[in-house]
């Protein structure tokens, strides 16, 4: 059996600048909300459709505003709920910035060619149209979004963004190192460097992490004999199973890009608490943490800070079985 991932058939249904588009899934790596991404903002003088560069899965992706490139009314900048489609363009990885992700269009539906005569310049004509949800929809060919002038602007913006991207890489690596060996000073220094570069959200996140470390200091000191490493939702599930079956006590800390942090507490193999930055309820926090696609974990053995009554269902085996269902059904 081949381990190569199958290329997906079908189309993404996107909305941008008041238009509905379909984008072949074959060239799409993933769809994200901008608040899940770390973005180096555009440099001064960059074209209006250039929204900066994001780092994802070890690669940098220039962010391109789809509506602006299409000549449709575009909202300026990127909001937290802006949809970013990480896809291929000229064999480069790019992020197409859209207003909304509306769904998946299955492959096999009929489509029709669009005559280049309909467009102001045949060079930038859209190739095909299809019907979906009873409305005409345009097939998007990312390469044809660009005029020759815009292609030159794209190349120039790529060159200009190099310094910003390199700095973002460096700081991201520092952050990953800090996730393995967290220190208050380290996070404060990192916050200062983010601030200096104008990445205020990142700076605030680092300061919050430093503050959190200060309060958690007694639990965090026990690093000897602790486990750490990269984590995704499947690895996390395995970790939970191992910690449960081996009757461990301690805290499992999780840290993922985009400000996702959390902790799961174990007492003699039983999960007794879960916390995440944006969920009050322990069970909800646990489910959120089990959706992490990429991050780091650290397990600190010892008595967890949660010493009262368990905030999670008492039957950890059943709870893990439920989480397994969630993980298996996740894409």
């Amino acid at each position: 059996m081949s381990d190569r991932p199958k290329s997906l058939a079908g189309f993404l249904w996107l909305r941008s600048g008041g238009h509905d588009f379909s984008l072949p899934l074959a060239g799409v790596r993933r769809v994200a909300l901008s608040n899940q991404l770390r973005v180096a903002p555009p440099e001064r003088g960059a074209p209006s459709w250039w929204c900066g560069v994001t780092l994802d899965d070890g690669r940098s992706h220039p962010l391109l505003n789809l509506a602006d490139l299409m000549g449709a009314p575009a909202s300026r900048g990127i909001g937290p709920d802006t949809v970013v489609v990480l896809a291929s363009l000229w064999q480069l990885s790019v992020g197409l910035v859209c207003d909304r992700f509306r769904g998946i269009i299955p492959a096999g539906d009929p489509s029709w060619p669009l005559s280049p005569a309909l467009f102001s310049t045949s060079e930038r004509a859209l190739p095909r149209m299809r019907l979906w949800a009873g409305r005409p929809m345009l097939d998007l060919a990312p390469e044809q979004l660009f005029s020759a002038q815009q292609r030159a602007q794209f190349d120039q913006a790529m060159k200009n963004s190099k310094v910003n991207v390199d700095q973002l890489w460096e700081l991201s690596e520092l952050e990953q190192q800090l996730a393995v060996e967290p220190t208050v000073t380290g996070y404060n220094d990192l916050a200062a460097r983010y601030k200096k570069l104008g990445w205020l959200e990142e700076a605030e996140r680092m300061q919050a992490r430093a503050a959190q470390l200060k309060t958690e200091a007694p639990a965090m000191r026990v690093t000897a004999g602790g486990l750490s490493g990269p984590v995704n939702h499947r690895v996390l599930l395995e970790l939970l199973q191992v910690l449960h079956l081996t009757g461990k006590s301690g805290e499992l800390l999780l840290d993922a890009p985009g400000g996702i942090t959390g902790a799961i507490s174990f007492r003699v193999g039983a999960m007794v608490d879960a916390k995440s930055a944006d969920a009050e309820d322990a069970l909800k926090a646990l489910r959120q943490l089990c959706a992490i696609k990429a991050g780091r974990y650290q397990f600190f053995p010892g008595v967890p800070s949660q010493t009262g009554e368990s905030r999670l269902p008492a039957d950890t085996t059943t709870l893990i079985a439920e989480l397994e269902k969630q993980v298996i059904s996740a894409p």
Binding site: G17, H19, P110, W112, F119, S120, L126, M129, R135, L138
Partner: peptide, 20 residues
């Protein structure tokens, strides 16, 4: 449905008989 980048005399696309 408006067609982006279209010539001024192209108003857009409409569905007739199951096709745009």
């Amino acid at each position: 449905v408006p067609l982006p980048r279209a010539k001024p005399w192209v108003v857009g696309l409409a569905v007739h008989d199951g096709r745009p």
